[in-house]
């Protein structure tokens, strides 16, 4: 089951450059939220703050509070590793593990969490691959082919399956379809649409049509600030900020 997210006064830096400025956002459970904005506006950094991936960069700094469900993930004493175990992430470029079989790719997260029983793993791998709409294409070569042998679109669905296998409370997607062709993109979008019945999804996208198609809520970022955050129909039909309107009508960005 998905959980809600509550972000309060989030500021993030790389070295001296401030990437995010005073971001506030509240997202309900089991909804898809799209994050849009021009390149360099801080979208990716924003989602990376939601599972504490931001701090894996040695120059990174952060203030503010992020609550996922009822847990404050930046509270002292909370281990970033535990936070990430409950939050799935899918990256822009598909990054399956090239030295592992398809099966091992999906099972990787479970094995990290101490699952070793054969039948549990089998069931979880099958379930996740079915959820990611990849099962039918790979079920015969699960243990024979490596994750890197698949096509780009299949690789990305494999990465989604890998993220789903650990039953995350929240799924973060950083431009999951930007490196894919339209057909693969369509499959991923369909998938996101189905996932929201069980997961809370935050998706960064460059593609405004994509945001309009899949998201319930949309946030528009510009120069590190969250300019507007509202229901997707509202953002794309009657935005309240002039800058949002300029962006979605293609006048800049």
């Amino acid at each position: 089951m998905g959980v809600g997210i509550e972000v309060r006064d989030l500021n993030a830096w790389f070295g001296k450059a401030q990437i995010l400025k005073e971001v506030n956002m509240t997202v309900g459970p089991n909804a898809v939220t799209a994050v849009i904005g021009p390149s360099g506006c801080g979208k990716s950094t924003y989602v990376r703050c939601l599972n504490r991936m931001h701090e894996t960069n040695p120059d990174a700094k952060l203030t503010g509070s992020v609550k996922v469900g009822d847990k404050e993930i930046y509270e002292s004493g909370i281990d970033a590793v535990d936070v990430r175990r409950k939050i799935g992430m899918v990256f822009q470029k598909p990054n399956p593990f090239p030295t592992m079989s398809i099966y091992d790719n999906v099972a990787a997260g479970l094995r990290l969490n101490g699952f070793n029983k054969r039948h549990e793993l089998d069931a979880a791998v099958e379930g996740s691959l079915k959820m990611a709409a990849l099962w039918d294409e790979v079920k015969d070569v699960l243990k024979k082919k490596s994750g890197a042998s698949l096509s780009g679109g299949q690789q990305q669905r494999l990465c989604i399956a890998r993220a789903l296998a650990v039953q995350p409370e929240l799924l973060l997607m950083d431009e999951p379809a930007s490196a894919l062709d339209p057909i693969s993109t369509g499959k991923i979008e369909e998938l996101i649409f189905q996932l929201k019945t069980q997961y809370t999804v935050v998706i960064v996208t460059h593609n405004m049509q994509q945001a309009a198609r899949v998201a319930d809520y949309t946030g528009f970022f510009l120069m590190g600030k969250l300019i507007e955050f509202d229901k997707t129909e509202k953002i794309f039909t009657t935005p309240s900020d002039k800058r949002t309107e300029d962006y979605i009508t293609g006048r800049f960005g």
């Binding site: 599972n51 991936m53 894996t56 590793v81 535990d82 936070v83 990430r84 175990r85 409950k86 939050i87 799935g88 992430m89 990256f91 470029k93 990054n95 399956p96 593990f97 090239p98 030295t99 592992m100 990787a108 997260g109 990290l112 969490n113 990465c159 890998r162 993220a163 650990v166």
Partner: peptide, 29 residues
């Protein structure tokens, strides 16, 4: 070893050593 491999493992909730073992050494063997 591409940074994306390290991030993939970290995002699954790996500790530093698990990251080195799964993402780095495995790919670099």
């Amino acid at each position: 070893v591409p940074q994306s491999q390290r991030e993939a493992v970290l995002a699954l909730g790996a500790t530093r050593w698990e990251m080195v073992r799964m993402a780095v050494l495995r790919n670099a063997r």
